[in-house]
């Protein structure tokens, strides 16, 4: 059972590495905003004209005068205790602001991920199996078009055609209740996932084509295995590695793109919150969101790394030998 112990050890190493990555990024995130132009104290007193004394008092109160390491330490200490500070803009704790916005964004990303997994991977499989036919060429054309359409363009087209002209979907807002929310999230999810879907389709297609050429596929067919079973058990199964890797990268990348799509569809979510808080110099919220996005990246990629040995047992052997 040494292999189990080796696997546990390598998983532990991954988790430690994940913690270190998060610590380093927290420092980068904090310091980059520290260096950013604009004075948060000036924002806090916006609309009024405070005396220099009042301004200094505010700076003192919010700790803007403390040296950088002290401020970082205070912030990190808070973050580690689940306290991301207070939002100047909303006069609430950052955590509660984020918490109220997170479900909408998670729904958006969730639906998009589902679309990518079903439509993107599905189209890739069809594209590989129907290569050289009209269907196969149609898939390739869709991939090229899809990859070339930025999400804000997709958003505008979807809103005007499916939303305004045909009236099938609402064009703005989040909706209330699960079904209504789902209805509201369809167009944003399509806009968000078009580019990513094209990418996943392309990766799936080429991974499938690679695997279709393998000798063991011909061998399985020569043993009288039904073609469908061979495609499922030997072609798609072996192509999963690149597909899962690219899906993992994209899911975390989608969090960033929600900023564009949520703004375009007037949705209230973490993405639109980020845009708003950058505009208003609400640094505490921006820091928390950026850290959240980085954490999502790290967590998803670590998850992919941990899943990989299940997909390809040869990786397990190499990991044990390391």
């Amino acid at each position: 059972m040494t292999s189990v112990r080796a696997a546990a050890r390598s998983a532990l190493c991954r988790l430690l590495g994940m913690a270190v990555t998060l610590l380093v990024t927290s420092f980068l995130v904090f310091s980059s905003l520290y260096l950013a132009p604009g004075d948060p104290a000036a924002f806090l007193v916006r609309g009024r004209s405070p005396s220099p004394d009042e301004l200094a008092a505010i700076r003192q109160q919010y700790g803007f005068n403390d040296p950088f390491p002290v401020r970082y330490w205070h912030w990190l200490d808070g973050v580690l205790h689940g306290d991301f500070g207070r939002s100047y803009l909303f006069h609430q704790s950052v955590a509660s602001v984020l918490w109220s916005r997170l479900p909408a964004t998670l729904l958006l990303v969730g639906v998009s991920t589902l679309m990518i997994a079903v439509v993107g991977v599905g189209a890739g499989i069809v594209g590989a199996l129907r290569r050289g036919t009209r269907t196969g060429s149609a898939v390739l054309l869709m991939v090229t078009v899809g990859a070339a359409v930025p999400s804000f363009v997709a958003a505008i087209v979807l809103r005007s055609v499916l939303g305004v002209k045909l009236g099938w979907f609402p064009t703005i807002g989040n909706g209330t209740g699960f079904v209504d929310q789902l209805h509201h999230v369809v167009l944003p999810a399509i806009a968000l996932s078009v580019t990513f879907m094209a990418l996943v389709t392309r990766v799936t297609r080429s991974a499938m084509l690679d695997e279709l050429r393998r000798e063991h596929v011909e061998v399985a067919l020569s043993r009288g295995m039904p073609r469908g079973a061979v495609i499922r058990r030997h072609v798609l199964r072996n192509a999963l590695g690149p597909i899962v890797t690219v899906c993992g990268l994209l899911v975390s990348g989608m969090l960033v793109s929600t900023a564009i799509v949520e703004t375009a569809f007037g949705m209230s979510g973490v993405g639109s919150l980020l845009v708003q808080c950058v505009d208003e110099l609400d640094f505490q919220v921006v820091q928390a969101i950026v850290l959240l996005v980085v954490a999502a990246f790290v967590v998803v990629n670590t998850a992919v790394d941990l899943v990989y040995p299940l997909i390809d047992p040869r990786v397990r052997a190499a990991g044990g030998a390391r």
Partner: peptide, 28 residues
């Protein structure tokens, strides 16, 4: 049945030996 030249290429590397031996019996 055919026995191929290079068993490394002819047997799916990510599936267990048991799977290779039983899949035809179970699926066919």
């Amino acid at each position: 049945s055919m026995i191929f030249q290079d068993p490394r290429a002819a047997i799916n590397p990510v599936r267990r030996i048991g799977d290779f031996l039983t899949e035809a019996l179970r699926l066919v």
